[in-house]
Amino acid sequence: MSKKGKKKPIFKRWWFWLIAIIIVVAVNSNGDETADTNKEENETAVETAEDKSKEKKEEPKTEDTEVEDDVPTEYKSALKKAESYAKSMNMSKSAIFDQLTSEHGEKFSEEAATYAMDNLEFDWKENALKKAESYSKSMHMSKQGIYDQLISESGEKFTEEEAQYAIDNLKTDFKKNALEKAKNYQETMSMSPEAIRDQLTSEHGEKFTQEEADYAIKNLDK
């Protein structure tokens, strides 16, 4: 068979390449449109999420505001007074309540005082410790004397747990406190050493230990 009788392969025909080019252009065009569509959808989704987030942040806290507005002025004043007593005078929770309601004190209603104490967040153990430190430094009291004063209904009215925390964390040389008390008795009341010793250890007196009292008497004239 002659060469003229052979057919050209299909990929060498001009119309084959024309069709191929048309198909490629069509596919690329559809791909770009799909990409643009997906991009627009993603951007819309992001914008919607951002809008919702902004709306959520901008929502006013109406419930909290309403609750605060519903609190009577007397209650708010009682709370401020309670905070002042706790911070400036290191008072106990019970003592503050009594001061708020006392006829000789702040004269708030029991409801207002109760609201104040229920909403006053404070470390009462630390207040007890500060009171204990004050009694030790200014009045040279014994460990037992300070404890009794902290829990006394006629004293500071701290709980036993709060008072014990104060005593356990009070860094004081009680022998020196006993000596200071002994000197005071000697100078102001001209008491004898033995009378001072008895006063220092008495349950109705200073309540120092025997060891602390002996130290005081031994060093009284030094």
Rank of each mutant, 00 (worst) to 15 (best):
M1L: 09
M1F: 08
S2E: 14
K3E: 12
K3R: 09
K3F: 11
K6L: 15
R13Y: 03
R13M: 14
F16T: 10
I19H: 07
V25L: 15
S29R: 03
N30S: 10
G31F: 14
E33H: 01
T37Y: 02
N42S: 10
A49F: 01
S53K: 12
S53N: 11
E55R: 11
E59T: 06
E59H: 03
E63I: 11
D64H: 01
D70F: 09
A78I: 08
L79G: 02
K81F: 14
K81R: 12
K81G: 08
A82D: 02
E83Q: 14
E83G: 05
S84D: 11
Y85S: 01
S88T: 12
M89P: 00
N90C: 09
M91L: 13
M91N: 01
S94F: 05
I96W: 03
I96M: 04
F97Y: 15
D98P: 00
D98F: 09
Q99G: 06
E103G: 11
G105P: 04
E106Y: 10
F108P: 01
S109L: 06
S109P: 02
A116H: 02
M117C: 04
D118N: 15
D118M: 09
N119R: 05
L120V: 06
F122A: 06
D123K: 08
K125S: 08
K125C: 00
N127L: 09
E133C: 04
S134V: 11
S136N: 01
M139Y: 13
H140Q: 11
H140F: 13
K143F: 04
K143C: 02
Q144C: 01
I151W: 05
S154V: 07
G155A: 10
K157S: 07
E160F: 08
E160R: 08
E161V: 09
I167R: 03
I167W: 04
D168I: 07
F174Y: 12
N177W: 04
A178D: 04
E180K: 14
K183R: 15
E187P: 00
T188H: 12
T188I: 06
S190E: 13
P193T: 06
R197P: 02
R197F: 15
D198A: 11
L200V: 06
L200A: 03
T201M: 09
H204Y: 13
G205I: 07
E206T: 00
E206W: 00
K207D: 03
K207V: 00
Q210E: 15
E211P: 00
E212Q: 15
E212M: 05
D214L: 07
D214R: 05
A216F: 03
K218A: 15
N219S: 07
L220R: 05
L220K: 06
